[in-house]
């Protein structure tokens, strides 16, 4: 049961109204929905608290629920190497303002994950040190993994790129 999980007990005691335990029937992993404003505090708490010690950010990704409101959901998978326990955090974001605080100050490895989410979903991470596209190229128009990106839309063809200019 999720409520017996010591991590969730501590989170509820510390953050109370900011978080909500949600069911995850598919894989039974303990899951918590966090309000957007407090994601950085929650992550820092999970990382620094002695007997929690979530030192490994396993995954950071995004889901586009196009027919729901709020539309986007950023998902964090956290793991503690020493204690061997894991938790999933979910944050819902509105379509008109898809911004969230970066967690690169907690886990340095979040940098490229957040760039990937920005690249494919257009989620903007506040205070990110280097928020550029990571897999696509700078001239790309739009964010292709959003569900309203047409599956067969063609990008404008670029025959020359800034970094190859002058290399003749």
């Amino acid at each position: 049961m999720a409520e017996k999980n010591p991590t969730i007990k501590k989170l509820l005691a510390k953050f109370g109204g900011q978080i909500e335990v949600v069911a995850s029937p598919f894989d039974k992993m303990d899951t918590v929905r966090v309000k957007r404003e407090s994601i950085l505090d929650v992550c820092m708490f999970l990382r620094t608290e002695d007997d929690l010690d979530y030192d490994l950010m396993r995954d950071l990704t995004c889901v586009d629920y196009i027919h729901e409101k709020p539309r986007f959901e950023v998902v964090y998978h956290l793991y503690s190497i020493y204690n061997g326990h894991e938790i999933r955090l979910k944050v819902r974001l509105e379509e008109r303002d898809p911004t969230i605080d970066t967690v690169t100050s907690v886990w340095v490895g979040a940098n490229w994950y957040e760039r990937e989410v920005y690249d494919f979903y257009g989620i903007r991470f506040n205070n990110h040190p280097d928020l550029r596209r990571i897999l696509l190229y700078p001239e790309f128009v739009g964010h292709p993994l959003r569900k309203d990106y047409p599956i067969d839309r063609e990008q404008p063809l670029f025959e020359e790129r800034k970094e190859t200019k002058g290399v003749r």
Partner: peptide
């Protein structure tokens, strides 16, 4: 892919 297109063009020009 589109990301590679300028490279193909460059190689052909060389």
């Amino acid at each position: 892919c589109h990301k590679l297109a300028p490279v193909v063009k460059l190689v052909h020009e060389q």
